[in-house]
Amino acid sequence: MIKDNNNKKPRVAIYDFTDCEGCEVKIVSLREKLLLLEKKVDIVNWRLGQERFESGPYDITIIEGTPITDYEIKLLKDLRENSKILIALGACAALAGIPAIMPEKDRKIWYEKIYSSQYHPKGVDALPLSAYVQVDFSIHGCPVDEDEIIRAIEDLLSGKTPRYHDYSVCFECKQAGNPCRITEENKPCLGPITQGGCKAICISGGSPCYGCFGIREEANIPALIKILEKITDKNEVERYLTMFHSRSKEINDHK
């Protein structure tokens, strides 16, 4: 995707919107690999990681977090204009994720409860980057997996278009030797419809899969919902489906 810039290193910017910054910490925790990466690309703007704030245009812009405020939405559009490749980093950017967990109608109640009735919300809405601009690739996860960051960047640097995994979390979950939540433990799990790449880390740690790696291509969502509704009640299934996917079209089309 990135062609050789007369042997100049690609200029990379890393931005963040509303989120916990955990996915950027994952970039820092690449450690030795981050040093290798720095030899291949020139990170010219990264608020969290360094004191260098060069303006665009950029070859690759990596954005973490959900654009919530007018300022963030405008910045996102500017960044798109000034970037050859725009990458969403993590569930907040790719899916709207945790910032979108609250149903729109309930927001007012919680504003009052948490911030008092004097509060004037600055947020417009919680939508994924793709609601405003074209996103070239999403590095999925909450937080992202280090190997997936490397995979995407390696592909871009070698001139390939990064591809999404079409296999499910189940593939990695089976390798990890976990008992199946659905068939053996009668507990809900979104693993079968979720993209792999996470190494089934949640299930291995005893937690369910809430689908933070994004919905798999051609996943049979209605069939899984039917199975989950036999395991638990509709509200609980809804809780699973809205943990990260309250704004995912694939999911909302089947509700």
Partner: peptide, 11 residues
């Protein structure tokens, strides 16, 4: 309609 397409059977 029924198959989730998860691929477990093949693994």
């Amino acid at each position: 309609q029924k198959c989730l397409g998860c691929g477990i059977c093949t693994y």
